[in-house]
Amino acid sequence: MTISDIRKQAEGKMNQSIAAFQNSLTRIRTGRANPALLDTIHVEYYGSHVPLSQVANVSLIDARTISVQPWEKGMGAKIEKAIRESDLGLNPASMGDLIRVPMPPMSEERRREMTKVVRHEGEQAKIAVRNLRRDANEAIKKLVKDKEATEDEQKRAEAEIQKVTDRHVGEIDTLVAAKEKEIMEV
């Protein structure tokens, strides 16, 4: 493995960490409705637990209401129960075949709690990126130790990896700030 391979691999893994962080941000509740909020909910379906998206169509009615349209007639009550028992604090209302999930407005205290959750998730993502930097630097040091690279190449590569790390950490900070702003909007 060459230094450029190590750098490319580290950068690819850092991009994956940011993608995972963005995915986790979509699940954090703001005052606005988002169909991805219900992605974590599992419903019992013929004896096994399956994601809600596999038994119903989840979409938005308006900015504060999510609609859930079950594909089978008997699933409405099970879906409603699963949403109600989730830790999201949502109270679905059934209207025939359609289940409406209104998003309750969040209190100021709840908004502050959610921003702390966002900051914590951001810090975890930064730790993941920094761990990838450490792994890449160790791999480069191993190349130098095995005499497959020079110390000058090592210094240059570590500086490049640091630039990539700084760029990814900055991107995480930007995502955290944007999500905090979205949460604090009334």
Rank of each mutant, 00 (worst) to 15 (best):
V43M: 02
N23G: 13
K73F: 13
S17W: 04
M14D: 03
E180D: 06
T40S: 15
G12N: 09
S53W: 04
L60T: 13
P35G: 04
I18Y: 05
R134H: 10
Q16F: 09
I127C: 10
R134G: 05
A10Q: 04
A178E: 15
L52S: 07
S94Y: 01
T2M: 11
N131L: 06
R156F: 15
D152R: 04
K147I: 01
H120T: 13
K141D: 04
N91D: 09
V176N: 04
E153V: 02
H49V: 09
E113M: 06
R119C: 12
Q9A: 15
S86W: 02
V144Q: 09
A36L: 12
R64S: 07
S67G: 12
I79W: 00
I79T: 01
A10Y: 03
A19I: 12
A36W: 09
S17E: 10
H49G: 07
V118P: 03
S94W: 00
N57E: 13
D152Q: 11
S67T: 14
Q22N: 13
N137I: 09
R133G: 05
M114N: 10
E121S: 14
P92K: 01
A56D: 03
E158F: 01
V58L: 01
T30Y: 07
S59C: 05
R7C: 12
A139P: 04
V43Q: 04
E160Y: 10
G74V: 12
P105R: 07
T150L: 07
H120D: 15
P35H: 12
K73Y: 14
R134V: 01
M95F: 14
V68Y: 05
S53Q: 15
D152M: 09
P51K: 08
R111H: 03
V169D: 05
H49P: 06
M95N: 14
I99W: 02
L143N: 08
A157V: 08
N131M: 05
K141W: 03
H49Q: 15
N23L: 13
V186G: 03
A125W: 00
L60S: 10
S24K: 14
T150S: 15
A36Q: 08
G76Y: 04
I6Q: 00
I83P: 01
V164A: 07
L52Q: 07
K73V: 13
R110T: 14
R133N: 15
D39F: 05
K13F: 05
T65C: 09
A77I: 09
S53F: 08
E85M: 10
L25Y: 02
D97G: 12
I161P: 06
A36F: 10
H168P: 00
V117S: 08
V68D: 01
A157F: 05
T150G: 10
A10K: 00
P51Y: 12
P51A: 08
A82M: 04
K116P: 01
P105A: 11
L90F: 10
I99D: 00
R64I: 02
Q154S: 13
I6A: 00
V50H: 05
P51Q: 10
